[in-house]
Design a binder for these strands. Structure first.
Lengths: 209, 209
DNA sequence: TAGATTGTTAATCGATTAACAATC
DNA sequence: TAGATTGTTAATCGATTAACAATC
């Protein structure tokens, strides 16, 4: 399942397609053409067909795409049918918010545990996810499959914790700390959510029309 | 202060430059060349010089860039010196987390109020920001300058609330609901933080090398 | 069948990189 | 002065769009 030469721009559009197709499916729409889908999403029909053709032939001439089928295909490409395992490091406000509100299961993830240093939260559970002590982290990782670690911890410990986790074999990081994490190992993947960068681009745009 | 033809790609790099320059400044670095900055950020020196030259001439031949000066310039371009006013709609877990942890003031923002429907939080304050009732929202907006509204509310009310706010004159939205908001008015700016899209791209990448 | 729409190849556009004269 | 490094123009690369034969 190794596609080569898929550009980042294409990959970033896949979740949007998936989201739109889900919404269409839930509205009972059975089929859609690249043209209509493009209008709804503000993407050209050409680009949609180009994007899909990176992964296979999902449509039918003269008909378009079956919404349910296409949704399943793109979901498969994204791995929502994989049941990835995730643990959360840091169960503060943001970690708490994610555990409470984020639809992990719809995204193909199971949150097996959260870890924190604070004795007041260790031993409790949020939305069914047990909060464990950071002391148990290494043993937990050695004993379980962990595909992704979400980092909702203070900036100043982020790189250090990441390095430690990489040494333990973790390859996927969902990084909420506003710093650039890096690794010399190219198989380690970081996905960053930089709130500050996001707000600053908005700040720029509202000032420049 | 209206620069034309600045591509989105350039704008998205500005906060990264700003972040890196801040870090260099705090480490006491006085000057830096496009070459060194590029090495640190994994960007070519050419691109850095191209990016900066969209906004002015901030360097000096044979010397490079003065870190403090360049930081100030880019901060100015991004508007961190503007003191924008922000209100938050929805003071649930995520809103709470942002109020507690996000460095609004360092980003050039003041949070004047948060609004929620829940009577248990209305009347309280988080990190000095008062939580008001949604009933007070319209009057508040009419009486105050509001540059940006952060939307940390449930998906199903998001577009409706956004439309209402647009009608009241709001032009900047920091959208944390996992849906695509839109407006026919091109002066309205949406900056979306789609957690699910982000996690799905990570899901894709860990499966494909 | 005729009309619609795909998948794909070719053309265009824009963004990144390279090169270099200007100059500190 | 010689060396370094900018700002900018030109070359390259990659991504988006257009066109169209294939075909449902």
């Amino acid at each position: 399942m190794k596609k080569e030469n898929i550009s980042d721009a294409v990959i970033r559009r896949l979740p949007r397609y998936y989201r739109q197709l889900n919404s269409l499916f839930n509205s009972g729409v059975v089929r859609i053409s690249s043209h209509s889908l493009g209008q709804e999403m503000n993407i050209t029909a050409s680009q949609i067909r180009q994007d899909f053709s990176c992964f296979g032939e999902f449509g039918q001439q003269g008909y378009g795409y079956n919404v349910e089928e296409l949704r399943t295909e793109i979901g498969h490409i994204l791995g929502v049918d994989k049941n990835h395992h995730l643990i959360m490091i840091g169960a503060g406000n943001l970690g708490h918010a994610l555990l409470q509100n984020f639809p992990f299961s719809q995204t193909g993830f199971t949150v097996d545990a959260a870890f924190d240093v604070s004795p007041t939260v260790v031993g409790t559970a949020i939305n069914g996810v047990p909060i464990r002590s950071m002391d148990e982290l290494d043993d937990f990782i050695r004993a379980h499959t962990v595909d992704v670690v979400s980092l909702t911890i203070p900036q100043h410990v982020a790189q250090e914790v990441a390095d430690h986790l990489i040494a333990l074999g973790i390859r996927g990081f969902w990084n909420f700390t506003n710093i650039e994490l890096s690794s010399s190992d190219p198989t380690v993947q970081f996905e960053n959510i930089h709130f500050a960068d996001s707000l600053l681009t908005l700040s720029y745009r509202i000032a420049n029309l």
